[in-house]
Amino acid sequence: MRGSRAAGATTTRCPSCGTHLITQWVGRVAALHARCDAAPIGPEHEQLLRTPDRLTWCLVTGRWREPELRWRCPSRQCTHDVVIEHHCRQPAPPSTLF
């Protein structure tokens, strides 16, 4: 389904803990659905928090553009804000009674 995905990131809240999130399909062919904490992290925190199961992303913003998540720049010297995937520590509330 060509064109079914939005180009930019959208903001939402985690249903379990209420944290502000940025969500977006990142990539063109084999895209990943990234759900990241909206608050940027610094390079020192990136080294501590990043794991193979918790990726970091570049958050590209500009005066006249929508926020967009991109794969982390390989040089790690870019000037983009860095956000990390959200890992909720609270269990999700039940969605049904049964």
Rank of each mutant, 00 (worst) to 15 (best):
I84D: 00
R54C: 03
T61F: 05
P43H: 03
L55N: 02
G42L: 07
H33T: 13
W71K: 06
V83L: 04
C58H: 08
H45K: 14
V60E: 15
P67Y: 14
R63I: 08
W57Y: 07
R50G: 00
C36Q: 01
R50F: 00
H80N: 08
E68F: 11
W57D: 08
R50A: 04
R63H: 13
L59P: 10
C36H: 01
R54S: 07
D37Q: 14
D37R: 15
L32P: 00
R72M: 10
R50T: 07
E66A: 08
R63V: 05
S75R: 06
P74G: 10
V83C: 03
P52T: 08
W71R: 11
G42C: 12
P40K: 08
A30M: 03
L59M: 08
R65M: 14
A34T: 12
A30T: 14
L49I: 01
H33N: 13
Q77M: 01
T79F: 00
D81M: 03
H33S: 11
V60K: 14
I41Q: 05
T51Y: 01
R70L: 06
A38I: 10
H45Q: 15
E85H: 02
R70I: 02
R54F: 02
C73S: 15
P43M: 13
G62P: 10
C58D: 10
T51I: 01
C58P: 09
A30D: 14
Q47H: 13
V82K: 05
I84L: 04
A39C: 07
T51K: 01
R35W: 05
R76D: 12
T56E: 03
L48I: 15
R54A: 04
E68Y: 12
E46I: 03
W64C: 05
V29D: 11
E46A: 15
